[in-house]
Computed example of a mutant assay.
Amino acid sequence: MSGELGLFSVSDLYENKVRRGEIDADHGQRELAHRFDGLLDEISEQRLSRKTSSLGWLFAKHRPQNDPVKGLYVWGEVGRGKTMIMDLFYDIAPVKRKGRFHFHEFMRDIHARIKQARADIAAGKIKGDDPIKPVADMLSQELRLLCFDEFSVSDIADAMLLGRLFSRLFADGVVVVATSNVEPGELYKDGLNRQLFMPFIDLLGQYCDVVRLASRTDFRLEKLGGAPVYLYPLTDEKRNQFETIWQKLIEAPCAPSDAVSYQGRSIHVPQAYMGAARFAFEDLCARPLAASDYLRLCEIYHTFFVENIPHFGRNNRNEAKRFILFIDTLYDNHVRLVLSAVAKAAELNSNLNGTEAFEFDRTVSRLIEMQSDEYLDACSSL
């Protein structure tokens, strides 16, 4: 139906990218594009059924107005093309009121709205005592199609909120599309009071079709195209090379910032896009971050770009300790790292000794291993 309405299909857009040589054809991605074409048709049919024209009367016979359109929850390993295909769908979806968000960006906005709603209730501007209802009502007025990238739940505040919020959004007919690295049943796994979160998983299954993208390879790793992942020294040439690799991965000159909520704090991410995060060394190691903070970041991002790694000695011992923790965390969780440094790994220790020198020797070994094809291939298979 989308073709009859003068719209491109997701499959058309996907095949155009293949013909232009932007991507390699992949069976799993093609199948997912077809699923999104079906959703386009459902949305288009629902819009026509609501029209007062004779055409609307015709489509209303096939789709009752209170029959909700089921969205899609697409999950699979990182870098397989979930976000790319969802974005093709989003660009041509025939919905005026639509929004596309990174999930953590969306939740930050929701918490801010709830905070304001509580203040309005206290001031008598909003009746009742439930701040979630007015927020959900406002969202339903603003959006009819809601697309999420990198859907994940690890914060208890988010977990306790989602069921109540989305039950109202779904009831109001908002269509939800999400990409995630985990199937719905694995969301908030081992989280505190997870039993209170389980009804939300059932809700997702009721209002979204769950689809796994089992693509053949990690296309984001292919975008690195064999490029070096450890760049030194810090010359203009190496800085430009670092910048080029980043832009190739995100397919844009720059990316928006992000803020990761964790234990009541916010971890600033200068640039983040499609599971890749970019930092300066000071952002990660000159701030009071701990191993748990690095682990939290690894739960969200699969590729880290870190620039301007310095020499380490007595003057930056604290930074060196954090750098050791950071590399240990990435290594243990099989996360990819692209970095620029003042020197090769074996020459970064200029004046560390004792236990710190021993620990840094381990870091040097891991930095070298993280450049290997074996390590990168292991990352892509997870």
Rank of each mutant, 00 (worst) to 15 (best):
R265A: 13
P94I: 13
H27F: 03
V364C: 12
V135C: 06
L169H: 08
P253L: 01
R108N: 14
R63V: 15
E282L: 10
D209P: 00
P134C: 09
A290D: 13
Y331Q: 05
E222V: 01
G99K: 11
Y301H: 10
M370Y: 02
F101C: 06
L204F: 04
G313I: 06
R362N: 13
F36M: 05
A341K: 08
R20A: 15
A136C: 06
F304M: 10
A214P: 03
L289S: 05
K17I: 04
M138P: 00
H34V: 14
K223R: 15
F148E: 02
N353H: 11
T329N: 02
D67C: 09
E319N: 10
G99R: 15
L139C: 02
A112T: 11
D377L: 08
I110S: 04
S2V: 10
S180L: 06
P253V: 00
V18T: 05
K51I: 01
L196E: 14
G21Y: 11
V211Q: 05
V364D: 04
V338A: 04
I250M: 07
D202A: 13
R19N: 14
D293Q: 08
Q206R: 14
V338G: 02
P310I: 05
L367W: 12
F59E: 07
D202F: 04
A320V: 10
L297K: 00
E4T: 12
C254Y: 03
D190K: 15
S365C: 12
A119Y: 07
F59M: 13
F279T: 00
G185A: 15
L224F: 02
E299D: 12
A255D: 03
V306S: 02
K189C: 07
L55F: 02
V229M: 04
Q65W: 05
D137H: 10
S152G: 08
F89H: 08
E42L: 12
A277H: 04
Y207M: 05
V210H: 03
E15T: 11
M86H: 01
F170C: 10
A320D: 00
V153W: 08
D130Y: 08
E105N: 11
V210K: 02
K223T: 02
M1I: 13
G275Y: 01
E142A: 12
L40H: 03
R19V: 15
V74L: 13
R287G: 01
S167P: 05
E356N: 09
S365K: 09
M274C: 12
M274W: 00
R19Y: 11
A171D: 15
F323D: 02
M198K: 14
K321P: 01
L203V: 07
S2W: 13
N316C: 07
L204H: 05
I201K: 04
D258G: 00
R113M: 12
S49G: 09
D328V: 11
E186I: 00
F151C: 05
H334C: 10
F323C: 09
L192N: 03
L348G: 06
E282D: 13
G185E: 14
L352Q: 04
A341P: 09
Y230F: 14
R113W: 03
V135M: 10
L162A: 11
Q241I: 07
S180M: 08
R278K: 15
T363E: 00
T83V: 08
A341D: 10
Y273I: 01
T52N: 10
P199F: 09
A119P: 06
K61R: 15
S2I: 14
L330K: 05
A60Y: 07
S292G: 11
I300D: 01
S372K: 01
V175Y: 07
